[in-house]
Design a protein around this nucleic acid. Structure first.
Lengths: 244, 244
DNA sequence: CGTGTTTGTTATGAGGCGTAACGTTTCCTG
DNA sequence: CAGGAAACGTTACGCCTCATAACAAACACG
């Protein structure tokens, strides 16, 4: 069965139709997830909404896991695109603004698409195992790389200050060398460490909020807490601190 | 059907048997979740492992949601118990040690029981809606309250320093008054804010790690990163900072 | 136009959830 | 202690979903 189409040549009529149907299936799945507030999705329901029968969907996805894999990859792409869109209008030198924009995109995405967020960054779905390599991993790196790029830009323009915690273990230094050698000589190890802690900070807030653990806070207070949180993250990491 | 037993009087033979069976069901469910690495659980499987038939389980839990509710409540209790156990041997004045111990328990629990962690603090399970009041909420407060108690102890002994971020919005001040008036006059608003940010920091790291997003780091590096992370959290919040 | 591919259908089986109806064991009380 | 009630467990069943198989229609293309 022809499943993945090379993009080098123009798509035939059939291939375009196939892609359109594939997209519609994914979009319908997301709609249903939004509607029902779950990451669960029934082929039966997707098919019904699309005016098809369930077995037809197996022409496009071998099973539910393959659909989920596609949705997860799309999720990373969507997150990456949102961050990119938020960063685009900001000048490269506005580091504080870019940091706020990137963090806020992350948060806004999680709030507007909590199911997709859970799918991508939450507990792996029952039975689903992420492929070690592939489009998913690449999309993930692309999305997260944008956060890293702010640190890189800061370091390259000499505006990356000392992080609040300066002690770095050999294990983390080794990890930067082994896994992110592109940062060696640009982002010092203590800032590499701070970078991951910054992601953890951001993710922690967004995660708690998306899963309803901040529901007891008024929306205004949540917004203010986030603004403060993101300033804290910048300050802790040695990034230029956004204005309060 | 008799479901909840008053603890004031001794339990009859039957009540003890019922409780034992209920516990066995929950334990079996957790075992299966651990085994399969999911938060999914089939009554059929539980029953098979227990040497029963599935419909018998409905004598103990009305449906899957009720079992999940019980597991979530137990999860909070387990988390609370672990934190309490970690704090118990430490003297009240060792604030830095207590902070490290509490944070590490949180992390250890998530790592040793990732499914329970996902159940309790992750995405709400398909279809499941948490009851607004009840044992779940109380257990949650008890578990999280222990983190808060470290801040309270620090404040009461005059060892709670200024948090890194001092600006606090009126909305957050109002929220402390409305939802946590027991802290008013003890924990200043900017520290109340820092407290929640500290939770978010802790949760973010633990969450990313539990869901495999730090798998690319060597275990040693993860441990070191966590040590650094928890020091950062303490420093940012104005708590006494643990030694590196 | 005819042939092979693609896309859809209906039919079917396997398995889980939850209910109903029916024994069997356990407790409790007259 | 005997009878009755409650609790506990079973089998049988209906409904739903996943996934496959077999078949029919639409389409592309020589």
């Amino acid at each position: 069965m022809l499943r993945y189409v090379t993009v080098t040549q123009a798509l035939s009529r059939r291939e375009k139709a196939r892609l359109a149907t594939t997209d519609e299936i994914k979009a319908t799945a997301l709609d249903l997830m939004r509607e029902q507030g779950t990451t669960d999705v029934r082929f039966t329901d997707i098919a019904r909404v699309m005016g098809m029968t369930a077995p037809a969907l197996y022409r496009y996805f071998d099973d539910r896991d393959e659909l989920l894999t596609a949705l997860i990859a799309d999720g990373y792409l969507a997150l990456g695109a949102r961050i990119a869109a938020a960063l685009a209008p900001l000048p490269a030198e506005d580091l504080a603004g870019r940091w706020v924009a990137a963090g806020s995109s992350y948060r806004d995405w999680a709030r507007s698409e909590p199911q997709q967020f859970a799918l991508v960054l939450g507990m792996p779905v029952p039975g689903y195992v992420a492929p070690d390599e592939g489009p998913t991993t690449e999309a993930a790196k692309a999305a997260m790389g944008q956060l890293a790029s702010i640190f890189v830009a800061a370091a390259e323009t000499g505006r990356l200050g000392e992080p609040l915690i300066r002690e770095v273990s050999q294990a983390i230094i080794d990890c930067e060398k082994a896994k992110h050698d592109e940062l060696i000589g640009i982002v010092p190890p203590e800032s590499f460490q701070a970078m991951m802690q910054t992601w953890a900070m951001l993710h922690g807030f967004v995660s708690l909020e998306a899963y309803g653990h901040f529901d007891w806070l008024e929306p205004d207070a949540r917004d203010e807490l986030f603004r403060s949180h993101i300033r804290l993250a910048a300050k802790a990491a040695g990034l230029p601190v956004p204005a309060p």
